[in-house]
Simulated scan of single mutants.
Amino acid sequence: MREKLKRSFFILTSMSIFILVLLFIGEEYDEPKKIEEKTHYLPKVSYISSSEDAQASSIFSYGVLKPKWDITLKSQVNGAITYINPLFESGSLVTSNTVLMHIEDKPYKSQKSKAEVAFAEAKLGLIQAKKKTENTNRYWELSGINSPPSDLALFKPQLDIAEKALEAARQDILVADSNLSYTHVKAPFKGTIIERKVGLGQQVVEGEPLLRLIDHQNFYLPVFLSEMQWKNLSNQWLNSKAKLYLNEGEVIADATIISGGYHLDSETRQYPLFMEVNSAQNDGLISGQFIKVRIAGKIFDNYLSLPESALTQDGAIWFIDHQDTLRFYEPKDIHYQDKHVLVPAPDKTDYLGQKIWRVATVPLSFFLAGQRVEPIEVLMEK
């Protein structure tokens, strides 16, 4: 009997141990499933909220700053160069009215003296002609003749000639003064001497080039637009303002669009626009600088303003619908405004009249249309 009890106890103990082992093994196999269930999650996608509205676009282009005046200064008199200003060198910056050189002036001083003598003689001749006319008129009145005297009798033709001779002599003095002033060659504006063409002692003649001078105060900027940019240009582009940038930096000046656009450039086959730079903002500007230009474009209704990063390489965007699933959208039209892109809002009929669009800020390679995600809103930079 005792052996039977021992055997039963042994069997029960063995079965209990076996059951415990099975339970332990079962828990070991269930644990990975629980871990797997815990680690299963939705991918997080950052988005910005954008509502469709009227959006003002911008057009960007580049150009090289050019001087408004680029001249070759020529001699207006004949003679030898007797003086050269030390500043008269290529690359020198000179101010307006700076005397750059002297040309021999003795012949022109003589010309002025002769003109002054001729003027004095003409003035005397006019006085004599007036006196003669007055005396003749007085004698005619004293003679008692009732009929009026003729112009010839009063020497009026001679008086008219004397008046014109005096005016001609006055103009000769002005010409002599001008010629004498031309012997002092001056800079007509503040500018940079690009090339000196003459030297001290050189004999020059009227019309001979002396130097090349470019403007240092007034600039203009030619830029070229593609056909699409031209079509997207604001209708009020003429006399409108444009912003100028050095590379990607801050605005350095304003410019006014003064002309252009009505023909294609023969070299670039694009539409040229010509801008005049605001002279009050030209500090630091020099001819030849490469300038970035922003021009006001048209205003587009029912467009979204998005960061440039939201655009894929193919020009598409991803947005999250009301069910937190990804949607792929290829806009037919894209415009730019500062660091943002402007795209037409998707058709509301396809998305249950959606008004606020949750657009992925950075499209990622794992995005699939219809994929559920966990949206995380971020603020769009202004």
Score class of each variant (00 low, 15 high):
S57G: 14
S57W: 01
S50Q: 05
Q55T: 07
E31C: 02
Q55R: 13
W69D: 07
S50F: 03
D53M: 08
S46F: 10
D53Y: 07
A54C: 02
K33S: 05
K68Q: 12
D53L: 04
E36Q: 12
Q55N: 05
E52C: 03
V64Y: 09
K38A: 15
I35Q: 14
S61F: 05
H40D: 09
E31H: 02
E36I: 05
Y41P: 01
S51H: 03
S50N: 02
V45D: 11
E31L: 15
S51M: 09
K68N: 10
P67D: 07
K44I: 09
E37P: 03
V45R: 02
E28M: 13
K34R: 14
Q55K: 11
E36A: 15
S61A: 15
E37N: 13
Q55S: 08
K33W: 08
E37L: 12
Q55H: 01
K66M: 11
Y41K: 12
H40R: 13
K33Q: 07
S58W: 02
I59M: 06
T39A: 08
S46G: 04
P43R: 11
S61G: 11
K38F: 11
Y41S: 14
G63R: 05
Q55P: 00
D53H: 10
T39V: 13
Y29Q: 12
Y62D: 04
S49F: 01
K44H: 06
D30H: 10
D53K: 14
F60M: 08
A54R: 05
L42Q: 07
S51F: 03
S57K: 00
W69E: 08
E52L: 03
P32M: 06
S46M: 07
Y47N: 03
S58P: 00
Q55G: 00
I35F: 09
D30K: 14
L65A: 05
V45F: 03
K68T: 09
S51R: 06
Y62H: 10
Y41D: 09
E28R: 15
Y41M: 06
P32I: 08
A54H: 04
K66R: 13
A54Q: 07
S61W: 04
